[in-house]
Amino acid sequence: MIDVQRLRVLRSVSEHGSFNRAATALRMTPSAVSQHIAALERSLGARVVDRSTRGVTLTRAGRIMVGAAESVAAELAHATRMVERLGAGRTQLAVATFTSGGRHLLPGALTRLTSAHPGTVVHIREAEPEDSLPLLREGAVDVALAYHFDGPLPCGQGSGPEVEWIPLLEDPLHVVLPETHPLAGRGVLDITELADEPWVFGCLKTEAYLRRYAERAGFSPEVRGTTTDYFFARSLVAAGVGLSLVPSVALVPHVPGLRAVPVGPPAPARHVGAAVLRRRGDPVVSTLVESLRQSVAGAVKTSPARAR
């Protein structure tokens, strides 16, 4: 039988890349970490790490076992929360969300959830997808409201519990510019038309997208501001600092004096969705996902971009 503690040690060795750093994280001695790994290898009859002067790397068997360790950790965390719910006599739900999704999509969904399941205690954690999806795998949250652009989900596919991605919204990006800008009256804009403009951003990922697009188009954007809040970025546009790229969902509340113009093909968009672990069958989670679908439908109808 595989010892769960040994799997925990292997996860830490994988995460930190050495016995010494794993020992520090686990508050153990390096010798104890080494003994746990050796015992795990004996029980498996296979090496799980390759040791060298530069640290340790996982073998193929080690990678398989780390995936199993992540699954076990998530299941134990989920089971612990279920037992805590029994003891407390109240249903609890942990949700991780990115900022603009939490601001514009989640509140209405939570109102419908608590109406359908009175007494549910909801815990919210603000986190970008690269953090919220691992939290989901680890069992720290039940639902992750997340997004991705033109790349894959940052959830470490291939190891740990299987994540189910439930698409909710294609959230197109718009160029936000002052109403007095010569191009503000256009119905659609090609980003190459704005190659000489300065930019401010409300998200590192939209900046990364523009830099990739600009590189393919043969220009280098001048970035004058980087924030983690789209409303802040739009306020900087209103102050004349530069233009911005903003998803439809984050175009509210309206900032006077600004215009949002759709980006022409290939139109960039955020793919917004809810991530859950498969085979949980939790009715509260199912209700929240359905409530998020309703919030998305309402957000699309009332979007300033759709109203024009």
Rank of each mutant, 00 (worst) to 15 (best):
M1W: 04
R6G: 05
L10S: 06
G17R: 05
A22G: 06
A23E: 03
A23F: 01
S34W: 03
A38R: 13
E41L: 09
S43L: 05
A61K: 11
A61V: 02
M65G: 01
V66S: 08
S71Q: 15
H78C: 00
R81C: 01
V83R: 10
E84V: 08
R85M: 08
L86E: 11
A88F: 03
G89L: 08
V95H: 06
A96M: 06
F98C: 08
S100W: 01
L106V: 11
P107R: 11
A116V: 07
H117R: 13
G119C: 07
A127R: 15
E128K: 02
D131L: 12
L133Q: 09
R137L: 07
R137Y: 00
D150Q: 11
P152Q: 05
G156N: 11
P161M: 08
E164G: 05
I166D: 06
L168F: 03
L169W: 09
D171M: 02
P178H: 03
P178I: 04
T180C: 01
E197V: 09
F201W: 14
G202K: 14
L204G: 14
A208G: 12
R212D: 14
A214V: 03
R216L: 15
F219R: 12
R224Q: 02
T226W: 00
T227L: 14
T227H: 15
T228V: 12
V241Q: 01
V241N: 00
G242K: 05
L243S: 02
A250K: 07
P253V: 00
V255E: 10
G264S: 14
P266T: 08
R270D: 01
H271N: 07
L277W: 02
L277K: 07
E290T: 14
